[in-house]
Nucleic acid binder design. Structure first.
Lengths: 148, 148
DNA sequence: GGATCGTCATATCAATTGCAACCGGAAGGC
DNA sequence: GCCTTCCGGTTGCAATTGATATGACGATCC
């Protein structure tokens, strides 16, 4: 167990990063979005307006990252930011038509790449991965409830 | 499938990151090592001298990252860097006594934290995770052999 | 042997990130 | 009403990272 390759957390991180790199190659290299921008666009394109609070809760991004990523998305005309009417400290983020169009262009490609990879796995292993990952996420949450 | 939480690559990345954060909390917050520094120390403390080529091959770090991380480790007195005798372009990295001592202090704590988390998983799920992760790593390697 | 090409380490510069201060705005006490 | 405290978002600055260029070295071909 003194070899890094066999050290589980490292294998997990390396695999996740490799997967992620593959997808960044789709939405980043071709469309110039960073990972954070893609995540935000993903959440916003689902439908209606979302507050910044929702965003940082539903991503692993902190408020500075949300602020800067959304600024760039706004500069690109993909989203708009308004001040929330009930609490003027909050922002309401909304995807523009251009943003939704871009999202609808990219999503199938990302899904296709994802499918390419996942369907290359032997039968049953994907289910095993799902099972294991869910259990791990739960375990991490239980062990370290403090988080950020 | 329009929810980020259910989007598999995201779940994988988020879980890996959460796990990693937990470990960084051990070697980083308490001993001031970055993830890269910890990885290098890990590899070097195993035993004898290692060339920079080995290092970047056995981590996901490129040579610039190796160069920088090892510089910091040298500044802290944890490793030494010599010029390789057979190829004077290469560097030979060796862990100092201080480096090994620090590693021997940290490793048990990292392993303990890892065990805390993994053993909180229900019976069988860890094996499933191993299986799935290996299959996924293979699939990624097959799909995108170019990599870096 | 000398020219040329590929490779490794490092330097340099721009872009990104993290941290902490700051600026409104809200909430609660008085 | 005000004043204090807390909270969300932004901004500035320092440290880090990434991309690219430079310089040193080794290997190959002539």
């Amino acid at each position: 167990m003194t070899d890094l390759d066999t050290f589980f957390p490292y294998r997990l991180a390396a695999t996740a990063e490799a997967f992620s790199r593959n997808l960044v190659d789709v939405y980043g290299r071709q469309y110039g979005l960073s990972r954070e921008e893609w995540r935000l666009l993903f959440l916003l394109s689902a439908g209606d307006s979302v507050t910044s609070l929702d965003l940082s809760r539903r991503t692993t991004l902190d408020k500075v990252q949300v602020s800067r990523a959304s600024q760039r998305l706004e500069d690109k005309g993909l989203i708009t930011r308004q001040i929330a009417p009930n609490d003027r400290r909050l922002r309401l983020y909304t995807s523009t038509d251009a943003g939704k169009a871009l999202f609808n262009t990219i999503l199938p490609q990302v899904q296709a790449r994802t499918q390419d990879i996942l369907s290359a796995m032997p039968e049953g292993d994907l289910e095993a991965l799902h099972r294991g990952l869910s259990a791990l996420a739960t375990a991490i949450g239980d062990i370290a409830p403090e988080g950020s």
